[in-house]
Simulated scan of single mutants.
Amino acid sequence: MEFIGRGLAFPVRTDATGSVALVGGDREVVESIRLILGTSPGERPMRPEFGCAIHDLVFAPADAATAGQIAYEVRIALERWEPRITLDDVVVGFDAVDEGMLLIDIRYTLRDRNDPRNLVFPFYVIPTHDIPAHDAVPQPGDRLAEVDQRAIAAPAREVS
């Protein structure tokens, strides 16, 4: 357990005694992975190369090519910045409900013991939306727009 060590909790917070919270063991590694993936390169002035370049893909389409690029960027970042793990696999899948969310499944083994783990990190892209054609959107002065305006302005009549 000496190899993993202890460190500041992220986000920085206090514990029940009012001291700065520390984490150790497996939790330290999980928080470190989340910190690496949540930091964009260039975000830290004193360590500009630290982080993962997945943030450059926020506006990329949610497709297989983007998923492959995300897996590559995660692998490169974790192999460089987290020496306490052996990265076994990075699998990127698509969420069935939210078309803008990709799930990054990171499978790793703690180096000081043969203990396989995984961490699922959600990554959000901006989903593409179909923009309606100009003709389909009523414009002021269009006959369809005028009819809609008259229907809104007309009082409702009761049917006897």
Results as ranks from 00 to 15, higher is better:
residue 49 E to W: 09
residue 128 T to S: 14
residue 158 E to V: 13
residue 140 P to W: 10
residue 23 V to K: 10
residue 32 S to C: 15
residue 104 I to K: 02
residue 138 P to G: 07
residue 78 L to K: 08
residue 19 S to I: 00
residue 33 I to V: 15
residue 61 P to S: 11
residue 119 L to C: 01
residue 25 G to V: 10
residue 134 H to S: 13
residue 66 T to G: 05
residue 77 A to H: 06
residue 156 A to V: 15
residue 62 A to T: 13
residue 79 E to S: 06
residue 90 V to I: 11
residue 140 P to L: 14
residue 101 M to W: 00
residue 37 L to Y: 03
residue 31 E to P: 03
residue 38 G to L: 02
residue 13 R to D: 13
residue 129 H to R: 14
residue 77 A to P: 06
residue 89 D to N: 12
residue 57 L to K: 06
residue 115 D to H: 13
residue 149 Q to W: 12
residue 98 D to R: 05
residue 42 G to E: 05
residue 52 C to L: 06
residue 146 E to C: 01
residue 60 A to Y: 07
residue 132 P to Q: 12
residue 35 L to G: 01
residue 12 V to A: 06
residue 2 E to D: 06
residue 63 D to Y: 10
residue 42 G to K: 05
residue 156 A to S: 13
residue 5 G to L: 12
residue 15 D to W: 06
residue 35 L to W: 12
residue 2 E to V: 09
residue 141 G to C: 14
residue 47 R to G: 00
residue 108 Y to P: 03
residue 95 D to F: 04
residue 74 V to S: 08
residue 3 F to Q: 04
residue 1 M to L: 04
residue 55 H to A: 03
residue 28 E to W: 06
residue 9 A to N: 11
residue 52 C to S: 13
residue 49 E to C: 01
residue 70 I to K: 04
residue 92 V to Y: 06
residue 47 R to L: 03
residue 89 D to F: 02
residue 86 T to H: 08
residue 120 V to Y: 03
residue 151 A to N: 02
residue 148 D to G: 03
residue 11 P to D: 09
residue 133 A to I: 05
residue 49 E to Q: 15
residue 103 L to D: 13
residue 3 F to V: 00
residue 87 L to A: 03
residue 59 F to M: 14
